[in-house]
Design a protein around this nucleic acid. Structure first.
Length: 758
DNA sequence: CTAGGGTTAG
């Protein structure tokens, strides 16, 4: 039979070739069956054939089972019963095999019952087929029962059970059976070793792994390449890299498979340099290449952000013509993204001839890392409509992230529903991303629902939810959650404390903030970093305790960084302290000349004090350094469409109505305006972007006129508009939610959830 | 026997 003229196109992956070969052979065999085998009528009506002890019937059953037509086969049993023809053991084997392939436990059980009736003492081989069927159909209970009942066991039966135990993580049972096998004198086959080794996947079972290694040596199987590699990988997974290296060094022939395993070990342990060193060794030794090696090496380069080295490897890949391979192209995309070379990443992606789900998830998460969230969502949508099969839980997680940054709950919840339908919410990753998404959209109830639905929320999920409350200004709820989490036995990490300190900061809880900062190391063994100290500076500064903040900065175990001064400066602005603000501004400009806050806030401080010259100096400095103040912008979603407004915006088609609506609040504005010292500012106040957005929200009250008006703003809420929103919420009895660049403000009956503290 | 993509912060 001529086979394997498959795939004229180049296919360098070994596994793919083998898989294809198998399927071709199988197909060829059974497509060549003569047509009469599938003709029920012929066989049953033919008296002649019946005399051949049912050979034809059995052959027919074999054919049906090879084609997975189990129902038809089962129907045919009746015909056979009628004709008094019995099913041969070989036919049973084929039928069990079909049940396995189709994972049909129900067919398997019926068949097993039938087999028991037919044979008093079925052969071990046949019993093993049933055993394997139960294992592969996922019924360990049935398999266990049969295994106990079997009067005779051979190596295959034991191997089958060992591998199913090992695969299910029932290590004790697997190892127990292995020992009994040794005791019984049965020599474990090499596949027993490889399966057992594969199931040893964490440091707690290193001891068992070493013992098995010992048995391998005694059994003289050390030169078996797959067992050798299995041992190496076992040591990698059990975290014993030294052992893995020893095994590697003793290998007679260094195959790329083993090297890949060791390199993966190094990369996962954060030892990317060692992985690359090994790669260079292989290079000089002239070891053959395969795409797996490249993917690991590229990952190592990505983690080191070693752009130059990675580019050299890229050149190597290109020379070998592997650029278009998914297995190399995909890690290449990720490598460029991690190095922030976005253009190269896009080019690398375009070079992949057949991108798969991993490739797509890499590029979509890349868009997120490039802050091209709209592009990420656009790509997702187009894939969703054209080729939904390439979407996986990784991609959904990235989209949730994109929606949280865009605060787009509309798309977000739809994608969430879609992910539920397709069971593609990554456990932990996806769920935490959803909690963040709903929190950032101001839907804490939905975030809560996701959180509550988790069986075992991990530290990231807890942290997401705590930050959600912090973001919303629910300090007490955030702290209650934290304590609750601790009592559940969860260990907070460094990010958790950022969330806790942020909560304190947003609510002005100075003493509590200091308490948590002090407790970090003492009680929770988490070393505070400069970020945590910056949070504390923020807490002091916001609370107006500027001297304390300064003192704290002097005594903290880190040099103040740009963020330290920025927090302090922002406190100086809030609490109108020009003197300290000048110092802070100078320090901030020194440490981060590109941060506009270092110019804008001092400028505001100067103008408020009437120091025009100094203020002008700030503007001049900014212009010289080619910096631009970010324009204040607010937006609101109406029927899924986003309406954006900037100061004094008159581009909106309903501009006239919007300004008329604003006039209704003139009385209130009068008092407001008198507080301002600058004419220019006074005029701008009337058409600040958030006011325009609120007014638009009021006039376009569709459907549910009682639904809160949700406004988003790119900068921090302006105090005057904050007052305005409080007033509007009182006189219109509409709830208003403003999400500024830092947090949520929830206005209700003339009050804001932030208690005027932000 | 070996790989590549995703979560929490200001």
């Amino acid at each position: 039979m001529t086979i394997i003229t498959i795939q004229s196109s180049y296919s360098p992956s070994r596994i793919q070739v083998i898989k294809n070969t198998n399927s071709v052979i199988k197909h060829a065999n059974f497509d060549q069956f003569p047509s009469w085998v599938s003709l029920k009528t012929t066989t049953t009506s033919s008296v002649k054939l019946e005399h051949k002890q049912g050979q034809v019937e059995n052959l027919h059953l074999v054919s049906l089972s090879k084609h997975g037509k189990l129902n038809e086969a089962f129907e045919f049993f009746q015909e056979m019963d009628k004709a008094g023809v019995s099913i041969s053991p070989y036919t049973y084997q084929c039928l069990f095999e079909a049940c396995r392939e189709l994972k049909s436990l129900s067919h398997g059980r019926v068949l097993h019952d039938r087999m028991r009736m037919a044979f008093e003492n079925p052969s071990v081989t046949l019993q093993n087929c049933v055993l394997l069927m139960y294992c592969e159909c996922g019924s360990l209970v049935d398999a266990d029962k049969l295994f106990d009942e079997m009067p005779e066991l051979n190596a295959v039966s034991r191997v089958t059970m060992i591998s199913v135990y090992a695969g299910k993580g029932l290590l004790g049972k697997a190892v127990g059976l292995f020992s009994r096998m040794l005791e019984s004198g049965d020599k474990p086959t090499s596949s027993v070793y490889t399966t057992l080794l594969k199931s040893l996947v964490n440091p707690s079972v290193l001891g068992i792994g070493r013992q098995i290694h010992g048995h391998v040596i005694r059994a003289g199987l050390c030169n078996n390449a797959s067992i050798e590699t299995g041992i190496l990988n076992m040591y990698v997974k059990c975290g014993w890299l030294k052992g893995a290296k020893l095994v590697f060094d003793q290998m007679a022939v260094k195959k790329p498979v083993a090297s890949t395993g060791l390199m993966v070990g190094y990369t996962q342990a954060g030892r990317a340099r060692d992985a690359l060193k090994l790669f260079v060794d292989l290079l000089t030794e002239g070891v053959e290449w395969d795409s797996f090696v490249f993917s690991v090496v590229l990952k190592a380069c990505a983690s080191l952000e070693a752009l130059n080295l990675g580019e050299q490897i890229h050149a190597c890949v290109a020379k070998l013509g592997l650029e278009s391979e998914v297995s190399v192209g995909t890690p290449l995309v990720d490598f460029y993204i991690k190095c922030s070379s976005f253009e190269s990443a896009c080019r690398a992606f375009q070079n992949i001839s057949e991108p798969n789900d991993v490739s797509w998830s890499a590029i979509i998460s890349g868009y997120c890392q490039m802050s091209q969230f709209e592009e990420a969502i656009k790509t997702f949508k187009s894939l969703r409509s054209k080729n939904a099969a390439v979407l996986n839980s990784f991609t959904y997680t990235s989209i949730f992230q994109a929606c949280s940054v865009l605060a787009d709950c509309n798309i977000g919840s739809q994608v969430h529903a879609d992910a539920i339908k397709r069971s593609l919410i990554g456990s932990q990753y996806g769920e935490s991303a959803l909690i963040t998404m709903y929190s950032k959209c101001g839907c804490l109830d939905d975030a809560n629902e996701v959180f509550e639905s988790m069986d075992n929320p991990d530290i990231v999920a807890w942290t997401s939810f705590i930050s959600g409350h912090a973001y919303y200004g629910n300090a007490s709820e955030a702290l209650r959650l934290f304590e609750n989490m601790v009592s559940c036995g969860m260990k907070p990490n460094s990010v958790t404390f950022i969330a806790v300190l942020t909560a304190c900061s947003h609510a002005g809880l100075v003493t509590q903030g200091k308490h948590y900062l002090d407790m970090m190391l003492q009680n929770y063994n988490v070393a505070p970093t400069i970020d945590h100290y910056d949070c504390m500076i923020d807490i002091y500064s916001r609370a107006g305790l500027l001297d304390e903040a300064l003192e704290f900065m002097k005594n903290m175990p880190f040099q103040p960084d740009a963020m330290s001064w920025k927090c302090f400066l922002s406190g100086c602005w809030t609490h109108k302290n020009l003197e300290l603000g000048e110092i802070a501004g100078e320090e901030l400009r020194k440490l981060d000349p590109a941060d506009t806050a270092g110019y804008v806030l001092p400028f505001n401080l100067y103008t408020r004090a009437g120091k025009w010259e100094e203020a002008a100096e700030m503007m001049k400095l900014m212009n010289e350094r080619m910096l631009k103040k970010e324009l204040s912008c607010s937006w609101i979603r109406e029927k899924g469409k986003i309406h954006r407004f900037i100061v004094g915006d008159k581009h909106h088609p309903q501009t006239q109505e919007i300004y008329e609506k604003l006039k209704e609040f003139d009385d209130f504005m009068e008092g407001d305006v008198f507080q301002c010292s600058m004419t220019e500012r006074r005029e701008q106040l009337l058409d600040h972007s958030e006011r325009l957005a609120i007014a638009f929200g009021l006039i376009s009250a569709t459907g549910n006129a009682r639904a809160p008006i949700k406004v988003f703003k790119n900068l921090r809420a302006c105090p005057d508009c904050h007052e305005f929103a409080k007033h509007v919420s009182l006189v219109t009895e509409r709830e208003i939610v403003i999400r500024d660049s830092r947090r949520f403000h929830h206005f209700k009956e003339g009050q804001c959830s932030c208690n005027d503290y932000w």
